[in-house]
């Protein structure tokens, strides 16, 4: 038998690729990105120091402000929409209905498709000339008008709508699993107590599933911050810059507009924002529990 220390050594050795990735691809890139955001780099990185100049430029940029506003609109609409629709679907599927498997399969299949596919399909359905509007005119409803995708003030809502279509099934799946995990006796006790079903959901089940809701919200929130593909596919950021989002802002300035300092400043803002919002939750979720278990 090899001595214990050697065995631990092979565990450490097995983690070398992981360490390389952690140090270079995660920690290194973050630091590098933040460093560039304090320079005056254009196409190529320049390692001078200009303080918060890029950040000031960023928040003076109309495009960035619109991106952030759009992210807020999209985020609220997407998260609330997915939660409400997903919860309703989960609860209704939990009522011992016929064909549950079929309904569940239908509700979840969009989640298997990419945001690119989602965006392209909905862009086609909502196409202002040949889409829904055209179909309604064909059916004789000639006054019907639906051109939100082509209107700068409305297009972002359509992106949100398509996002809900894609992800509501995810919330449904998570919450349905939660509902199925609730002790059968709780339902029995509530029936003996004479509590109506809707009241059981509101007063007992939803509070019991708060963890599931948080999980769903976190997953949706991550999708919100990362939102990029669906905008590219659905509107390309247009009309004009009316559906731009922060993630797209960064990519465009990095690779098309060749202003890497501004792009990295935007990326750093996203990073810090996510860290501030998610950090405490992550800590609570993983490390506090760990300590209690140990």
């Amino acid at each position: 038998m090899k001595p214990l220390r050697l065995r631990r050594l092979s565990a450490q050795a097995a983690l070398i690729p992981t360490w390389v990735i952690v140090i270079f691809a995660y920690l290194g890139t973050i630091l590098w990105t933040i460093r560039i955001s304090f320079t005056s780099s254009g196409i190529l990185p320049k390692y001078d120091f200009v303080g918060f100049e890029q950040y000031e430029r960023l928040f003076r940029s109309a495009r960035w402000i619109i991106s952030v506003q759009n992210l807020a609109i999209f985020g609220v609409m997407f998260i609330v929409g997915c939660l409400v629709l997903g919860f309703l679907m989960a609860v209704f599927l939990d009522q011992r209905i016929k064909g549950e498997g079929i309904f569940r399969t239908i509700f979840l299949y969009p989640y298997a498709m990419s945001f690119i596919v989602t965006g392209l399909v909905w862009a086609w359905i909502l196409n202002p000339t040949l889409g829904i509007q055209h179909a309604m005119h064909n059916w004789g409803w000639t006054s019907f008008s639906f051109d939100w995708l082509a209107r700068g003030d409305r297009a972002i809502y359509m992106v949100g709508f398509a996002g809900i279509w894609q992800s509501a099934g995810l919330v449904m799946a998570i919450l349905l699993a939660g509902l199925r995990g609730i002790d059968e006796d709780i339902w029995k006790a509530a029936r003996v107590d004479g509590i109506p079903t809707w009241r059981v959901y509101i007063s007992i089940v939803i509070p019991m599933m708060s963890g599931m809701f948080v999980t769903a919200i976190v997953l949706l929130a991550i999708a919100v911050v990362k939102v990029y593909d669906i905008v590219v596919a659905m509107t390309g950021g247009g009309p004009g810059i009316s559906t731009e989002v922060p993630a797209k802002f960064v990519i465009d300035y990095l690779f098309n507009r060749q202003n890497i300092a501004l792009a990295t400043a935007a990326a750093s803002v996203m990073f810090v924002a996510v860290l501030v919002v998610l950090g405490p939750w992550l800590y609570r979720q993983y490390f506090r529990k760990e300590r209690r278990a140990a």
Partner: peptide, 13 residues
Amino acid sequence: MGAFIPYQVYLYP
């Protein structure tokens, strides 16, 4: 952290 942070932070480096 890596699972939650937007990829944009890592891309350029």
